[in-house]
Design a protein around this nucleic acid. Structure first.
Lengths: 318, 318
DNA sequence: TTGAAAGCGCTAACAC
DNA sequence: GTGTTAGCGCTTTCAA
């Protein structure tokens, strides 16, 4: 439109001037209709809950990366609801997005079916169902559990417990992977492992609080507690404080996903940091690449988490 | 499409069956083009940074409310960048959204000009430029400052300070309102007020930390510190801890915007809670109402904040 | 009850 | 270098 040198500069200026006068703004529906599925390139991004910090972080990183390549991001928030997820996927197909980044709730297989059916290039993010063999960029949660177990043992803990997600998240493979690898890693280190060391908690402060009470009951003498997320770990600390159990001295506590408050000296929570921004950036790059090549993305990559050790695991005050 | 009783049920079923077989999903660009600006109703939502908890909260509340009325939300993240803001507004106009909810960066007046020019119904959220006279649903920040000053005086503080946003946010009226009303409220209570009691800080933990040091320097003997946001207040607590100044005993600290971590007993930060979800819900309701009536929204409403008193302002340990 | 046709706003192709 | 036209996929209207 701007590049066409057939038109004299004078005419162009005259027309553009008129356009400005008439407050002309093109109709993107018409342009898109005419153009097929390209040009105003859009990438759909399916997430489960925009109010969760790591989802909004990923959205922001994806937006920045997409913008560099002339793409925009259309966010679809599923609220962990499979019906809403399918509706969002359909909406993206109706809008003829050029590709999709998908953090799925894993409560339905319909979404990938639809995307496959319409040959929409897509890439799974953060975590994938166990049987998924397509393109993805994920966090290595098994490694996260290994790091956690290894760290807790290193600081001197022998009796370990894992505070897991609750039943409402049972379908979500990320938490299953954390849990299973925790058990495996404990055994691999030659420590005893019993099912009672896995305690149903949840993803909130309240869940962590009551799960700590539960842990004291079912795992008497527990020394190291690995929590499914940071809020849960904060709940454990809260409950321990109230009971007068000294965190970092009598019990080591750690969580997954580093939030900025973890570094406050009043909290000082050891966590496993996962590179969400890098994850979203990489995924967006791959997807854009695939779209431009007209090929389905194939990349399968898993990013390593990182230990951030703080006072909450200075077990025995060493 | 579904409701048209002219078509026999048998034919309808036959066609729908074929549609399913062929994996038919309508093209929303074509539908929108044909239909004008209606039917697949979309509301644009301009925000400044999706990773800020209150923006994502508002987006979620707006989405839920919009969904109840058959609307969807198209989020435009400006990243506090005026050029990006204008681009997002243009994009929304190109997409012929039916209305816009606007949290503006207030660094440009072009956005409202464009929306007015294209007669897009819109409503300003959270905060508005001082001279804005259009429709809005905002937080009452003057009231927030009055509540804070009143609370700090009530717990026994005489020498108060306000840790404000930094220059990069100088354009943003919300922080100006907080600051100005703080000064007014202090004087209204008959306490001395000097410009040195306003200290440039910022919206982050680090900003709060260094601003606390600054406060000790320029306001020796400061007893009550009101912070522009919660992160800044957490920074003050951190810095006070490191200096051995006992928060809640030697100095009272409070912030604006209640986050869930504020209630942890290790933090126990007094805050002013603002009803962001209610704000977004109300705004969406008004906007939808205006769209359906074909009228521009006119509602001007301001929501009252609420004090959440905790240990950080148990000044003198009462 | 069904089929046919027009036209939404845009752009690419073609004729002038 | 410029004007004209066809057609993207849909919905609405009008004719059969």
């Amino acid at each position: 439109m701007v590049e066409d040198s057939r038109i004299s500069d004078e005419t162009r200026q005259r027309i553009l001037q008129q356009a400005r006068l008439l407050n002309y703004i093109p109709n993107s529906a018409a342009r898109k209709l005419r153009h097929g599925r390209s040009k105003i390139s859009v990438i759909g991004f399916l997430i489960n809950d925009i109010t969760h910090p790591f989802y909004s972080l990923m959205v922001q990183a994806a937006e920045k990366t997409a913008a560099r390549h002339g793409y925009e991001i259309l966010v679809g928030d599923t609220q962990w609801n499979p019906a809403k997820e399918v509706a969002e996927v359909k909406h993206m197909i109706e809008s003829r997005v050029d590709g999709v980044l998908a953090c799925l709730s894993e409560r339905t297989r319909e979404s990938t079916g639809l995307l496959d059916g319409f040959a929409v290039p897509y890439l799974m993010l953060d975590t994938t169902p166990r049987e998924y063999r397509g393109a993805c960029v994920v966090n290595d949660l098994a490694e996260a559990s290994r790091i956690a177990v290894s760290h807790l043992i290193q600081v001197g803990c022998r009796r370990l417990a894992f505070l897991a997600a609750d039943e409402s998240m049972a379908h979500f493979s990320a938490f299953t992977k954390l849990r299973e690898e925790f058990a495996r890693a404990v055994r691999a280190r030659g420590l005893p492992f019993e099912p009672s060391q896995i305690i149903r908690a949840g993803l909130s402060i309240e869940a962590g609080q009551s799960a700590f009470e539960e842990a004291l009951r079912v795992c008497p003498g527990v020394e190291g507690i690995f929590c499914v997320n940071t809020l849960c770990a904060l709940g454990v600390i809260e409950a321990a404080d109230r009971r007068g159990v000294r965190v970092g001295r009598e019990v080591a506590v750690m969580g997954v996903d580093d939030l900025d408050i973890c570094s406050l000296s009043r909290i000082s929570l050891t966590t496993i940091r996962q590179p969400y921004d890098q994850l979203a950036e990489l995924a967006t790059e791959y997807l854009v690449g695939a779209i431009e090549n007209g090929a389905a993305p194939t990349m399968r990559q898993s990013l390593k988490p990182e230990l951030v050790a703080r006072q909450s695991t200075r077990f025995g005050n060493r």
